[in-house]
Amino acid sequence: MAVAAATPANRPAPARAVLLFLTLLTTGCGTVHFDVPEGARVKLMEIDAPASVRVERTCWYALWGAKPLGDNHTASMIAENHLAEVRLHNQYSASDVIINTFTSIVSFSRRRIIVEGNTAAGATQ
C-alpha cells in the first residue's frame, strides 16, 4: 500500500498547531527604558565620541517578554558607574537568539543593554 507524502494541504492539524506555536514563541517581546536617575544631568554622546567605560547587562523577561525579571532601565547602570555622558544600545544578537530559542519554550527570553560613556572626570566638552 502506497502512502502519500504529507503536503501543506493535507498536513495533520497538530503539526500545523505546533508550527504556529513555535512561531509565536520566537516573537517574544521585551521593553527597555533608556533613562537616567532622577535629578541626574547626563549628556548624550555622539556616535563616534570616545568612551572609556562600557557596561553590559543581560535583561531577562518572563511570559515572552511581558514581565521583566530584573531592572530594565539604564538609570541604575548610569548611577552605579557615575557616568556623566553616555551612549546606549539595546542589542539582540545571535547568541541571544540561540539562547532564546530554547528558553522561550518555557516563556523566558533575554535582551542585552549596553551602556558606553565617560565619568565626570573624563567627560568630553
Binding site: T26, E46, L88, H89, Q91, Y92, S93, V97
Partner: peptide, 13 residues
C-alpha cells in the same frame, strides 16, 4: 525566523 538580530542605538546628533 529565530535568527533575527538587531540593535537599537541611542546617541546624539
Amino acid at each position: 525566523s529565530c535568527t533575527g538580530c538587531f540593535s537599537v542605538d541611542l546617541y546624539a546628533p
